[in-house]
Amino acid sequence: MTASHPPLRSFGRIKSRSIKPRQAALMDTLLPAIRPPDGAFDPRGLKDGATEAWLEIGFGGGEHMAAQAARRPDVLIIGAEPFQNGVASALRHLDEQQLDNVRIHDGDVRELIARMPDASLDRAFILFPDPWPKARHNKRRLIQDETVGELARLLRPGAALRFASDWADYVDWTLERVLKDGRFGWPAEQVADWRDPPADHITTRYEEKRLGDCAPVFLDFVRL
């Protein structure tokens, strides 16, 4: 009998510095109120009147997620982030802007998406995920065949998937695996289509640090 093993973690630290008192209070009060429910659920049912459901995987400090939610109050956005300091920061953004169309999963996104039904998402973002640049660590990258397959299952036909990275190898890795799945198209026609930030992109503090080995690249895929 083969022993079962938990999936490899695709993220690094869970927590770094101490969380500020105000944010810690939001972790105790706001976070429990906006977590997705346990068990199977349809994201469109998490907010009355929501016209679409979006997912952001690894939202960092939450700036992008909060800005998108403010722009589109008719959209329910689920954010997944295991890094507790990032969750605390996102909660501050939501509280300050009084945004009620965001739900937060403070853990591994793979556990979350396994509970969601087919074709239940209208858009997904994966922005500057941990690149795991050493070859021996590539297996820890979020973008794997299994993850792409789950995203293809969750995204309805015509839905958008945006991946961004400033690590050239991870861009190539992602392009290869997403297109290999066969259920996504990549309509880019010229260099500007992946080199220029998309019109609706919100630049975050992490992106501005330019920690990678190339200028940011934006891959906008479409679910076929």
Rank of each mutant, 00 (worst) to 15 (best):
I19W: 01
R9P: 04
F128T: 02
G58W: 02
I113F: 07
H105E: 11
I77W: 01
M1P: 12
F11I: 10
L211K: 14
R22A: 15
R17N: 13
V87A: 05
D42C: 07
R92E: 14
V191Y: 07
E207C: 01
D74F: 01
R153P: 07
R153F: 11
G61A: 11
D106N: 11
L211I: 11
R141N: 04
A160I: 11
S18A: 13
R195K: 14
A24L: 12
H201S: 00
R92A: 14
K180D: 15
P37C: 06
L112K: 02
E56H: 06
A119W: 09
D220L: 06
A119L: 10
L219K: 05
A3G: 11
D220S: 14
E189R: 15
L142W: 05
T51A: 13
P82L: 10
H5F: 13
A25I: 03
D48Y: 00
D95N: 10
D106C: 04
L76W: 00
L154M: 09
V171N: 09
P73N: 03
A33C: 05
N85Y: 09
A159S: 12
P198M: 05
S10D: 05
P117C: 11
K139C: 08
T51E: 11
D106L: 02
L30H: 04
W186L: 15
